[in-house]
Design a protein around this nucleic acid. Structure first.
Lengths: 237, 237
DNA sequence: CGAAGCTATTTTGTATACATATATTGTTAT
DNA sequence: ATAACAATATATGTATACAAAATAGCTTCG
């Protein structure tokens, strides 16, 4: 089985249990959720793979109870599938579902961009500009993981700039759902250069307070990414 | 406290426990979820009210375990709020949040309508037309509860016609979240007549395969409802 | 040789018991 | 009288034990 949290600096401790990072005031179930969601988003847990209550409980040195509760919480975010009396599995998304999800995501991110263009303040404009500069720099060095993270920050900045916390949360969730698949596509040939160019168009529209252009630029950006992702998957399956 | 399921024909049985309807193959947690979500949507559980694990467990004659799991599952649909170690409450939506949610809902339902206009088949067109006829009839008799239900069916038909199951599910969930608030607004003065008129515009655009007109008609419809709802709330708070 | 049916094992679902954190109440001191 | 603190009570979180269902493996029959 995939080694959960293998990347997060020495998760395993001497007693054989993986640590849940001392997080006072947080329940075990919540800490487990964070750990497991991270592992899913990072791709350490294969989509479709079964989540064994006992195994996970033993791995983290807790009882089944908080593990089960964590599963229920993750079902909230559509990251795991609960089939009654048949256990929990990491949600695996078929190509058809990905198409559908990107269609929705394009609309939601497009709305974020539209609202951001209408509402963005000078401070936020500067923030977005700064993140974009970092992205350009990361694109030049070619460090894909750094690029991926800053790309995320760019979108996050636009979510915030929309000043619609519900929309921001909804879009974030959707983004997390497809994260495991998205990450793979960053490595495609011209993806980095394209992304930088598309982001620039989005940013310019927002800073120019042009809602419709921001909307369509973001929509196109997300749709292009979706197309790339589907091409990528088609090549493997 | 509100009597959960008081409307669903004799929920209480002689042993003092409320029945969970024999649903073989379904877990208690799942049955509890359905019951409680129904009670929330119907407005029998006041938004903001605390959900007491013990009380609910006793009421249905089960242990706390499935009750807790049901709470976690409901958090998935944003119907309850879980504050760590401080219990679960029926999610109460502030006016500001309602504005934000309707903004998203208008976009999603608009997308449904747009896709429906592009993809609707003759059979589905007939179905939508039939539902609309029922709505007109219900509007004339003035039975508000029937009208509310058929209204729901009309929108549901459009979700299906979009042929995007993910979008349909997402929109449905959002609709459920605001259901407890929506229901109240149906009783406003001209709401029924307005709704019929707006639906007609939407339907015509869909049957004419005019995606943009369908989109904007639906968007306007949802936004008008949102405005009405906010007016209504403003009058009380 | 394959399929159907039964038994055994494993795993999920539920109940109960215990630990711990939060809320409440009452007391005391300023 | 009010504010701060301490003791109690209550509710949530977690662990363990038990029940029931699903899966796997085996036997038997066609």
């Amino acid at each position: 089985m995939a080694d959960i949290g293998a990347h997060s600096g020495g998760g395993r401790v001497k007693n054989g249990h993986e640590s849940l990072e001392a997080s006072p005031g947080m329940t075990l179930a919540e800490r487990l959720r964070q750990k497991l969601e991270g592992a899913i988003a990072a791709g350490h847990l294969e989509p479709g793979s079964r989540l064994d209550e006992q195994e996970i409980a033993q791995r983290f040195g807790v009882s089944r109870t908080p593990v089960r509760e964590a599963f229920r919480l993750m079902a909230a975010n559509n990251l795991v599938e609960l089939r009654g009396r048949q256990g929990a599995t990491v949600r695996s998304i078929k190509a058809q579902a990905l198409i559908e999800m990107f269609q929705v995501m394009a609309e939601l991110e497009g709305l974020c961009a539209r609202l951001a263009a209408r509402r963005v303040s000078l401070a936020w404009g500067a923030e977005i500009g700064k993140v974009h500069q970092q992205l350009v720099a990361a694109g030049e060095t070619g460090d894909i993981d750094v690029f991926y993270d800053i790309n995320q920050e760019f979108h996050e900045a636009i979510y915030e700039a929309s000043r619609n916390t519900f929309l921001a949360e909804q879009t974030r969730k959707l983004r997390n759902q497809v994260a495991a698949y998205r990450r793979r596509v960053t490595r495609m040939p011209n993806r980095i250069a394209d992304t930088v160019r598309e982001h620039e168009a989005i940013m310019r529209a927002i800073l120019a307070h042009d809602p419709e252009r921001a909307h369509s630029a973001m929509r196109d950006h997300v749709n292009l990414l979706g197309d790339n992702l589907l091409d990528f998957l088609a090549a493997f399956e």
